[in-house]
Each structure stands twice: as C-alpha cells, then as structure tokens.
Amino acid sequence: MKRVGRYVIFYGGLFGLWTLLAELKIWPPYLFPTPWGVGEALYAGFQDHSFWIAIAVSMRRVLIGYGISVVLGMILGLGVASNKFLEETVGGLLVSLQSLPSICWWPLALLWFGLNQNAILFVVVMGSLLSVTIAMEDGRKQMPKIYSMAGRNLGASGFQLFWHVLLPASLPYIVSGLKQGWAFAWRSLITAEMLYMSLGLGQVLMMGRDLNDMSAVIAVMLLIITIGYIVDGLVFKGIERHLQHKWGLLPAT
C-alpha cells in the first residue's frame, strides 16, 4: 500500500509539472504538447487503427527476430561452453562484438538483404543474439555439475541429457540473459524501423516528426515504453518468479 502511495505521489507530481509547464505556454505546443494533446493523439491513433497495426507489425517482427536469436544463441552458447577451442576463439569474438551497437549492422544488412523486412530482422537478431549466447554459455558453466553427472548416471546421454537435464538445469541462470536479449531485440527493432518505411512503431514515431506532431511522437514513445515494460516486467518477471518458486529459491528482490 505504501508503495502504491509513493507511485501515486511521484507520477502525480510528474504529471502536474508537465501540465503546469505546458499550460504556461513557454514553448509552442508543437514543441511541448499538453498531456491532453498526447491523450488525444493516442486515442486518434487507436481509433484509426494505425497504432494497432504498428504494434502488430512490430510485435511480429520482434518475436520472429528474438525467436531466431534464442534458438541460435542456445546452440552457439552450448557449443562455446562445451568446447575449449570454441570458448577461446568464438567466445572471445562474441564478447568483442557485443561492444558494437546493433544498428551498426544496418548498412551491412541493407547491402545483403536490400531495403526490406529481412534487413530489419537481421539487425534485431544481431542485437539480441550475443546476449542470449553469452547468457547460455554462462548458464551452462554456472550450472552445478552434479545435475549432469546425476543425469548421466541415470542413463541420459546426448540429446536426452541436453533436453531433460542441461537445459532445465541452466534455465534459472539463463533467464536473465534471455531478458536482456529481449531488451536489446526491442531497442534494435525500433531503431531499425525508424530508418525505413516499415509500418512498425518506429516508423509511426518518425511520421510524427515529419508532421511536426509532437503529441503523436510522445504518444508513440509511451507505447514503446509500455510494451517493453509489459514484456520485461510482467512476462519475464513472471517466468523468473515461476522458476524461483519451482526451484525453491528466494525471490531476488
């Protein structure tokens, strides 16, 4: 209850300040919109379905891109974790590649795939693949060895051992990496969408700029934050809680 109170005070204050600044009309409304203006932009966007379409397009892309990252990252991460040679070579390369902002792949993606959706997907995959891979590798290393020994001892080997023992045993260790991978995927997607007529949220955001419609810009930003938060704070938190409960671990907070 106390926490709710703090939220109300903080966000109420923020909202009040915004309203005050907007009502003082220090800046013209196309530079500093009122909360009502943004509300109207949101309403209009959903009313003419353009926001719904943008959300659907963006979500579809991020799910495909992230899905590819997770599958590839798991294979790569496991390979790197289980082979000394790969660990020293590929592992080192992956860490150094991670310092490259994912949008730097955009020019390359354009030349490889052309100006289309595949180029966007490529950037999303490159943005999240590395964190998933590194998380998987870490998870596999942090996982107590006894589980794999117990699994082999009970007759599991090869794919069975991977699927029934190694993967579930490393899940609590990789879920934070998967979450980070999601965050990167989402950011990379929006960035890439802003650079190309693409129907997604990123493009709607740029459209607001082109039309000098600051209310629409803020409205789309709010949407991007909200969707990111829902997946991050609800979906992944939920998975983490579920795992912690199942494993008998205390919540991290």
Partner: peptide
C-alpha cells in the same frame, strides 16, 4: 561408462529441483 546397472546416490543427492 555410466550404466543403469550401477546407480550412484551422490553425497549431495543431485535431485532435479525442476521436477
């Protein structure tokens, strides 16, 4: 190699917490 004709009960058990 390992075989199910010999089963080891580890000191730390190694029960699978996800099951």
């Amino acid at each position: 190699g390992p075989g199910t004709d010999r089963i080891l009960i580890f000191q730390d058990l190694g029960l699978f917490p996800w099951l």
